[in-house]
Design a protein around this nucleic acid. Structure first.
Lengths: 246, 246
DNA sequence: CATTCATATCTTGCATACAAGATTGAGTGA
DNA sequence: TCACTCAATCTTGTATGCAAGATATGAATG
């Protein structure tokens, strides 16, 4: 009953909302039953997501959300910093200003973020904080990079999911607002600087994960949750690990 | 007999080698016969390529290589400039130097480009000139961005295919060499500058297409080649148009 | 009791059959 | 001659069936 694109969109949104965790198994028959369609459609959605790096397949075992390790996370944050600051830098060089409608769209997005933050709607909050970056890329006029950035954002969410706290969320919101304020005042270079700093604070946390908890990898390796995704077993079990069972 | 990934790789390489032109139709049964497999496998490859933006599907009509128009080409070149100069900039900021093996890989690639250039092997020349950018991204250490960049490179090839001349190719090679020379001498900022200039010359041509030939769009719109991809009909027929039939 | 091996079961991999939309071209009527 | 209709054909869209690998279970064996 559902088309493949709606399934992949639903999965992406579920990840951004932190409703699906790294290592989660995506069974073909389960999804087919859920969406009332055949496995053919589900497989189409899985192949689509796999091409974008959002799911990985273990032959004859199943489809899984990747366990993003620290090395991969660093690459992802580097990539995002390059793309997002690059977009702002290119915008600044063009010496354009955002038109009123675009600016309104960004302000509306900020307002929604704030609302989700204050109502402590964790799922919506997580979704919006990630989606803001994609929204901004779209507003800056490059749809190609915006779509690539969405996929990167999904993957970074799979990593940060294990570490984000409410105070992190509040800080993120404020840094987002700073970017938009800078753009609104016509100072795109300042916006670039703000964004660089914003992503930098996250990227710094990536390094902290290693330094602050050198046992993390070993603990992860020795944890044995029920569905252990096989080919990434080095980092498996993380989703469970921070739920208090170690 | 073939797996889906080998089919998509073959198609990508064929585009980079300019053996497949924009607007080309990719019939499922044709490919299945060619690769001695079922349509299921072919469809898997098509869905994969579609997720990466390399093919587009016209419902119940078929799969086509996109006709990249000027607006899209500008986005693509902007995206490539952001990613490629961004990678070099990040590398420069890290103050690392390329190790000998990596440098050797780049020099070998340059030698192959030169060889293809001198032997006038057009297909290999085109492939290598595009692949160099992906190779460089890999050498700079970000596999995620390298894979995204490959897809962007395929699409820009679909655009430039109509305009590149032998002298353009020679210039590209020399600009590639300048980038590697700068990296070899430890001056990554200079490499970034070279790359920016290199991509800039191409992006400038994108604008020239419009300015230099204002009738292009009209000519394209009024051209009626045999397989007219329907949903991009505004720019259809370009592949045939520059083969001398107008 | 630990280990190994066989078997049952579950899940994905792939081919194929059929449904349904799109195109083409012949034929018909004005 | 032109426009329109309808059927034949071609191509993709989707479901399903079977093959085959992976895992789990449990009995047999040392």
């Amino acid at each position: 009953m559902a088309v493949a694109s709606s399934i992949s969109t639903r999965i992406i949104n579920a990840v951004l909302s932190q409703k699906l965790k790294p290592g989660a198994r995506l069974g073909e028959q389960e999804l087919a039953t859920l969406f009332q369609c055949s496995r053919t459609i589900v497989r189409e959605a899985m192949v689509d997501l796999a091409a974008r790096g959002i799911v990985i397949v273990s032959p004859r075992r199943g489809w899984y959300l990747p366990e993003v390790n620290v090395e991969m996370a660093r690459e992802l944050y580097d990539a995002r910093e390059i793309i997002e600051t690059g977009l702002l830098r290119a915008f600044a060089r063009r010496k354009e200003t955002l038109d009123a409608a675009t600016l309104a769209r960004l302000r509306l997005h900020l307002a929604e973020q704030k609302s989700a933050l204050e109502s402590e709607d964790v799922e919506r909050r997580s979704y919006l904080l990630g989606d803001f970056h994609v929204c901004l890329a779209q507003c800056l006029g490059n749809q190609v990079l915006a779509s690539k950035l969405r996929d990167l954002t999904v993957l970074t969410t799979l990593f940060t999911m294990r570490h984000q706290t409410p105070s992190d969320a509040r800080l993120s919101y404020e840094e987002h607002a700073a970017v938009v304020d800078a753009l609104a005042s016509g100072n795109a270079s300042e916006a670039e600087h703000c964004m660089c700093q914003h992503l930098g604070t996250w990227e710094a946390k990536v390094h902290l994960v290693r330094e602050h908890d050198p046992l993390e990898k070993l603990r992860q390796a020795l944890t044995s949750p029920k569905d252990l995704p096989p080919q990434v077993s080095r980092t498996a079990g993380v989703a469970k690990a921070d739920e208090g069972d170690i």
